[in-house]
Amino acid sequence: MAKITMREAISQALTEEMDRDPAVFIIGEEVGVWGGTYAVTKGFYDKYGPERIKDTPIAENAIIGAAIGAAMVGQRPIAELMTINFAFSAMDYVVNQAPKLHYMFGGQFMVPLVIRAVGGGGRQLGATHSQTPDAIFAHFPGLKVVSPGTPEDAKGLLKSAIRSNDPILFIEHATMYQIRGDVPDEEYLIPIGKSKVQREGKDVTIVTYCKGLELSMKAADELSNAGIEVEIVDLRTLRPLDMEPVLESFKKTNRAVVVEEGWKSYGVGSEIVSRIYEEAFDYVDAPILRVTQKEVPLPYNRTLEQAALPQVPDIVAAVKEVLK
């Protein structure tokens, strides 16, 4: 095991898959000469050249549309969206084209496409560049939505995504590239569509993913000091959603808190809570709470922005609340 950053994990997944399969190429804004706006593809342009590291115009429809077309004829493009907020410019391709083509033409077309997108707030980028709109994308059958919270998962899931024959939106968090974690030395894959228990506990189940995992792990340490042991289930994939580990944990703890960075209304938490009520109603001992972003467009001011984002104390408070 080696301790590496999230950035290194994602970068390793990309190079390993590019070295393994010549059909894999990267397409996006500033992925090449610039080295990636989050430096994930730093050095790639020199190593692989302009044919495999394709710098594009700032034109999201062209980026995702062209990636879809290339995927349809057998290549395996990885399209990078500088931020997930720019997916809205290419919304037609992300939700209305890529996820439909296989089904709508009776299985004739395959779209082996990975769209890497950077989401999340906390970098004072203002309301249009800071969103966590994951739930919107997870709404659409035909698209797979993956969002890892550890370097190990990021690497293993991204490698699986690149090998998959389906369109996959792979969401990374803008403030998590520097987090460190153990990653196996040997090659490994992590299957898409499997939730994972990241920390075991008996008192309360926390269901979360991506940035929520980082915050929840910190909250868990604090709660542990107070004698409360939480179990953390990391969804890792939002669609297809694997509820088994969530339900299994909930049937043990009978109490849950869902932590996500997106807004509460119509969010990931809404889905998780509904499913628990539908499938494990008899096990519910307390109302299930959600810790989310405040329902505002994210402001620029650092203090205000942090006040709008979910924080560790919010999680601690919610866990204590469901234990009352």
């Binding site: 044919e51 429809n61 549309g65 879809i68 077309g69 349809m72 290549q75």
Partner: peptide
């Protein structure tokens, strides 16, 4: 744009 992508795939190949 998908048409441009079909051609991108062919150019790549």
């Amino acid at each position: 744009p998908i048409a441009a992508g079909l051609a991108t795939g062919d150019q790549y190949a």
